[in-house]
Structures are given as C-alpha cells and as structure tokens.
Design a binder for these strands. Sequence first.
DNA 1: CACCGTTACGGTATCCGTAAGGATT
DNA 2: AATCCTTACGGATACCGTAACGGTG
Lengths: 325, 325
Amino acid sequence: MNLTQLRHIDAIVKNAYNLSRAAETLHTTQPGVSTQLRALEDELGVMIFERKGKRIIGLTAAGESIVSMSQEILQKIRAIRAVGEEFSQEKKGTFTIATTHTQARYALPAIITRFVKRYPDVQLRIRQGHPQQISEMVIQGDADIAIATEAIASYQQLLMLPVYRWNRCLIARSGHPVLKPRKPTLDLIAQFPIVTYDFAFAGRSAMNKSFIEAGLKPNIVLTAIDSDVIKHYVELGLGIGVLAHMAYDEKRDKKLRCKDVSHLFDDSVTSIGIRRGSFLRGYMLEFVEMFAPHLSIGQISSLLTKHSPELENELMQKLTDLPLR
Amino acid sequence: MNLTQLRHIDAIVKNAYNLSRAAETLHTTQPGVSTQLRALEDELGVMIFERKGKRIIGLTAAGESIVSMSQEILQKIRAIRAVGEEFSQEKKGTFTIATTHTQARYALPAIITRFVKRYPDVQLRIRQGHPQQISEMVIQGDADIAIATEAIASYQQLLMLPVYRWNRCLIARSGHPVLKPRKPTLDLIAQFPIVTYDFAFAGRSAMNKSFIEAGLKPNIVLTAIDSDVIKHYVELGLGIGVLAHMAYDEKRDKKLRCKDVSHLFDDSVTSIGIRRGSFLRGYMLEFVEMFAPHLSIGQISSLLTKHSPELENELMQKLTDLPLR
DNA sequence: CACCGTTACGGTATCCGTAAGGATT
DNA sequence: AATCCTTACGGATACCGTAACGGTG
C-alpha cells in the first residue's frame, strides 16, 4: 500500500469512476491507474470498486470505508506539508477562503485589507458558492476555511466557530408604501412582491420560518445568491427586497430606502467552518482571530488538534454574546 | 513523502531517538533510516528532529506536529488493512484486548467463552496492565480495545463506552471482628490493616475519597494490582481486604467471609475504550455488544466513524441505568 | 574505543509509460 | 465505432543494503 494508490482511488471516485479522467487529473496514464488499483485490491484482498464487466461503476461496501479513510489520510498528508511550509516560510503560502457573495462583498473587505497588508506574500484566493458547496470545498481540501451562515453546522467533519449575528432589513424605492409605518409587519410585507436570497442560503430559511409561523405566504418573485443583484432589481421596481443589514449602504444605494426588520425575523449566525484535524497555517489562524476577535489563536488551534466537545459546546451556547452586524 | 518515511519517523520516536534501534524494529538498516529521514526533512523543508551535533536528541516544534499527524495516518493505514481483512475473511483475524487483572479474571471469562465458541478462528490476545498502560496500548495501536475502570476517560483520543457499575466488598478471615456489625462503618475499617488495589487503579481512588471525606487515615499495609494476591494475603491474616464484589467467590474462597460495603464508597464504572477513528472488525463490534448489551453494533460503529458529541454525552449521562455487578 | 549518524556506491525491484488487446455501450 | 479497462513489455527510477567515514561521549 502506498500513497499513490490512495491518491488514485480518490481521483477515481472524484472523476465519476472513470479511470481515463482520473489518470488525467493525476497527470499520469490510464494503464498506470488501472495497475495500481489492481495492486491495491490484491493487497487488501477486497474489491474496492463495483464492476460491471470491465466497467467500473461504483464503490463496494468495503470500498466506501476504504475511500473515506484514504481521504482522511490524504488530508493529513496535506496537513504535514502545511506544517513544513509553516516552519520554513512563515509568511509565505496560499490561503483559500470559501464563502458566499454577501460575506465576500460586505463582511470581508475590511479584514482582508488588513490581512494583505500584514501578509503581502500570502496568495489569497476567494472561492464563491452557496453554503453547501462552500462546506464541501473545505471538506475536500479545496479551501482552507469556509465562511457562511449556519449551513456549515450540518457537516460533522467541520468545526464551527460562530463569528457574528446579523439580521435583515427591508429595502424599497423611496416613496414605496411599505416604508410608511415605523415598524413594518409581516402582513404588510407579504402584500408586495419580494426579491430576496436564494433558497440554498441559510439566511433565507430564517425568513421563511417567520412567514410560515404567521400563516402567511410571501410572494417571492425573484431570488438571487447575490445582494447586489437583489438591490438592482429592487431599484428597477420589481418589488421590495429583504436582505442582510450590512448589504445596504446608504451612500451607494441612494435610490433605495432601508428599514430594519429584525423584530420580524430571528437573528442568523455567520460562522467559520474548518475541517476537523486539519492544520491551519499561522497566518490563517491570525485571519480567523482578526475576523472573530472573541476567539484566540490558542483556542482555535487547540480546538483543531484536541477533541473537546465541552469547549465546542461552550462556544455554541454563547451565541447571544456575539456582536450584531 | 511516502508511508515508509512516516513509519520511520514514528519508529525513531518510539525508540527514544535512536536510529539504530529504530532500524531494527523496522527490519531494515540504519543508513536506510537515516537517508529516508533526511529525504523527508528536505522535502518538507524543516528539521523534524532536534540534533546535537550528529546525535538526534528529540523533536523540534514542527516535528511534534508532523509525528502526531504521521501516527494518525499510520493508524488509518492499519484501519484500511482491517477493512480488507473484514471483507475478505469475516471470521478470521486477531483481536487484542488490553485490560486489568480484575477484568480479565472475573468479568471477561464468561464473554470470552461465548466469543471463542462463535469465532474459533480469531486469535484472541489479552494484554494486562494498569489503566494508564492499557489506554496507551490502544492509542498506540498495540491493542484493539481497552477495558478498565474510569481512567480511560482522561484520554481525548479514546472513545469511552460505559459498560457496568460495580462496588466493593470487605473480606476477612472468618471470625475477624470487622465482620461483626451488619453494616461496617468507615471508622471500623480504618482500625484494621488493609490490603487493597494499587494506587494506579481507578477503583482505589474512589475508596480513598470516602476515607478522606470522613477525615480518616486508613492503614494500608499492602497494595496489589491483582485481586487474587489481595485475597491470598488476607487469607494469611495480614489484614482485611477491600476489593471488587465480583472478585469474591463464595465457593472458592472458603476461608474468607465477604461483607458488602457499597454504602461506604461511590460506585465505579467500568468502560470500554476505543481509539477514535479506528476501524473495528465485525467480531470486535460483536464482542463489545456481548459485553455491553445496552449498546448496539450500529451505535458503536456510528460513534466511531461520525463525530457526534451528543450521542457520547447521552451515554455518559445514563450511568445510573448501567447494570450493577 | 564503542556507539552513533552521515555519505557514497551499486544492484535490484518497483514503478510508469508505451503499445496492444478484449469488453461494453 | 467509440469509449473504457486490462494485460504485456521494457526502460528509468527510486529504494535499500553494504561499505566506508566523521562525530560524540
């Protein structure tokens, strides 16, 4: 058994059980992949892949376990590499943040500016996606940390660090009747066409919850993953918008008026997600600390290396202490 | 980087930083180890071992992380091998249980008899030690499961499954004055020389606790890790004995009388300890289920593969439901 | 001087790419 | 016919053992 073989089976799975594709992504030839696979199966004494004739069509039960363990091993190999880089060139490296548009556009710029100034030789990459994609990027090792709202929680392989709470505001063109009352009600909002976040986004389900509990059915005419898109369509008069408070900018959005509606919806919590057991470079820990000042670098790294449900629970209990943005 | 290199650095650490010894346990030559080590250090760009001239004397900070990750990787490699064996020869293999004398002698025989009948081709091995040694055997991969009382809890790397509660009884030669009262008191016990478990054993500290709380200082004349040794010395009249209830056998121990003292001491809990993330063979899971019938095989394996503090907590909360032996 | 780790060298086994050959859709 | 996987073969490479060398206590 060797690491090449593990990388091979991982690639086969990730390329939909196609040896030729797997070979390409591995920068090698397809017979090589085939041979190594067979060697591994022979050594272990089990078929890893389900075959139909000569075609490979999926994983066997044994293969499921083997692949998942292999992936953990490859993950740790990456971690070892990271340790090497950390100690040999402290201020150089790459850093991939997987996040949503709203975070990238409104929550992160300030932090990233500070970060880049402090670590000019770190190549920073932001990968966008919806919360599910983001989580999977981190699990697959395609990103170092995830920043998103709530959805990260459903992955046991991710460690969640709550960062801040936020709520929504209502936006509309100035003069729109929904802006009249000092405190808009759900009833009122439900009377107008709404433009808001896509359903894949956590912020959206917190909104739906309030409407459902009130027995109302909002008229959602358009959804987007992107606050800027939402604002644009509201400007065009397509409807009223419901979006994260921080996404409204008084100076930029001069055609729009904003009204707080946090009394209508539950707070949402934005968190950082990190793959359990991974090794974060010093500058990554520092980034996390910049973004979530209530967490110390020591705490974060001990959460990553040690298994301590107590500390994790403590964090999840203290949500109300988080800053509201 | 390859697995050989990881095995090498692991062996170096486990052989007190002596390359020659490491080479022996790896069944290879010392220059080979040296070369591989250097190759790994070069590739990662960091020194893994602290050197004093040419001597290797310890780990660097980077080395600490690297070695601990390597060990996790090697652990998972073993797990993959186990998966292979599990699916190719379901009823064959080895099974190493690390446990204390008392468990091996009094709690396990019944289960092991059943197990051996069901899996005659599994080579069963029992390794004895005190709780700390036992836990480390499992962490190092030298044993598959640990069975001991409480001490396992202090290792975060181990998953703990509570199995049963137990308490102590007082033994003495028939006619001994301590046997007079129906319910002996701590005061009374403290008046006689006591033979009991070694301090390294969890059962012992629960006993000490009661004496300390009562402000008494028991006169402990002899400690042993072995119930049979304790009984023997009590038979010789060296003192009275305090030991696990299950260690007294009315038929065998005819010279001794036994008196329940569970009103004086807290219950102790015996647990199974398993290395987190390891893969247990089907027969191992079945053994655990035999020993702890309140746990299902499904529960156990999902506790091992998934990260779910909730389920773990639930188990730890339900201690009072455990059978008393 | 005994022990320990590094460097040098050469043979071998392993790996990997090319080429060709059956299977499956 | 096109795609896909396996088998066969040969060359390059990396690995490992032997031998010799420099440090350390």
